[in-house]
């Protein structure tokens, strides 16, 4: 159990990176995890090659969802929108460095869901796409 609250996760939870929304972002998306009330709002700026140059986010929720958002905000800087669209659940779990059960994984994946939806520029993920 202590595994779940490893130091890197508690560190990102208590000292979140890239917190604060950007003004005039190129991409913006927010979503909730209705099961536990986690909320994430991401803003991003991209350059002429659709590469993410700046990320800012706000949110509230459990340590897993917020640490995941903080780690993702660092991870996607420098990535193209195409690369972000190709990201998977595995990428998030590798960033967190833990495995999660069926319930808590939704907390971890909210950041991916929001960032991918933003990258697709849609109100949500296309169809039944499995993230």
């Amino acid at each position: 159990m202590d595994d779940l609250y490893r130091d890197n996760i508690l560190d990102h939870f208590t000292n979140p990176r890239n917190r604060g929304l950007l003004e005039n972002p190129d991409i913006e998306f927010a979503d909730d995890n209705p099961l536990c009330g986690d909320h994430l709002h991401f803003t991003m700026k991209v350059d002429e090659n659709d590469r993410v140059v700046e990320v800012g986010w706000e949110g509230q929720g459990c340590a897993i969802s917020q640490a995941s958002a903080s780690m993702m905000s660092e991870h996607i800087i420098g990535k193209t929108l195409d690369e972000i669209r190709g990201m998977t659940k595995r990428d998030v779990l590798d960033l967190l460095g833990i495995e999660l059960g069926a319930v808590r994984i939704k907390c971890a994946l909210l950041s991916l869901k929001v960032i991918k939806a933003g990258a697709y520029g849609l109100d949500g993920l296309p169809g039944d796409e499995e993230i």
Binding site: M1, L4, G37, C62
Partner: peptide, 21 residues
């Protein structure tokens, strides 16, 4: 300490509660 984290840590001690809305 978000209720979900609380519930998870209580579960580690065998205490089953519910967290959320």
């Amino acid at each position: 300490l978000h209720p979900h984290d609380m519930a998870q840590l209580l579960d580690a001690e065998g205490v089953a509660v519910r967290a959320g809305h």
